[in-house]
Design a protein around this nucleic acid. Sequence first.
DNA 1: ATTGACGTTTACGTTAACGTAAACTGATGA
DNA 2: TCATCAGTTTACGTTAACGTAAACGTCAAT
Lengths: 133, 133
Amino acid sequence: MERTYSISELSSEFDITPRTIRYYESEGLISPDRAGQKRIYSARDRVRLALVLRGKRLGFSLAEAKEIIDLYAASHGEVGQLRTLLAKLGEKREMLEQKRKDLDASITSMDRYAERCRERLVELESSTREAAE
Amino acid sequence: MERTYSISELSSEFDITPRTIRYYESEGLISPDRAGQKRIYSARDRVRLALVLRGKRLGFSLAEAKEIIDLYAASHGEVGQLRTLLAKLGEKREMLEQKRKDLDASITSMDRYAERCRERLVELESSTREAAE
DNA sequence: ATTGACGTTTACGTTAACGTAAACTGATGA
DNA sequence: TCATCAGTTTACGTTAACGTAAACGTCAAT
């Protein structure tokens, strides 16, 4: 038997509210089982939730995140399905690549700037010491 | 004399509407000069606009983008200013690092998945050929 | 003189992604 | 038995980031 999760367990684990999780369900991002009224989340549901949140951190909308995540659950029955799946994966892959370029550019320019600041700080500190002599 | 830009030049270059650019100004992200009523954008304004858009692609809100971009325009006069600036740069740098982790994880898992799909496709195609013999 | 093209301000409208509150339903421990 | 969680549905409220429309200014070209 695999482990299951309640909505409050997941909400505290991922630091989001139950409302958010229910909203994701209403948008078709997760589909937990039910025990009567109560939602029962499987390990698979938990993984999907984690993927949604990661997508959000990367700036994807919920709709975009759903598109991507649903690719991982697509059926691989026929050759045609596999071909279109691979094509869609290629698209998403390009979006990620674009983000990587943006991110790398952001990081390198910030690092360069911080380095210049540190040099300037050393300058200022040494001149302060001179003034004290 | 440095080159300047009209609002429509920038909006078409970056593929956004003038409304968006004016909104960014109202949020304090850009502060173009004026020639009477008309806004005149400098090369510096253009760079800031590009930074805003890059920030958005990476999932930052306009407020977050502003915080980051404003760091690049902070004054380096006193030692104390430089110290707090470096501290803030460290914070932002960590946020970018987190995004890089998320992004790397997304890319590697997607690449792995695509590879499995390609293998499966080769299988299916070979079995199709066998059936044709 | 007027017609566009381009610009402006003001203000209301819209959508995504939830927040919040009300009213209800079991299960469970004192 | 009663209260107290933990969960549920329904529904209205909110915020960021613009869209859209109205009403107006200005300048060059016809």
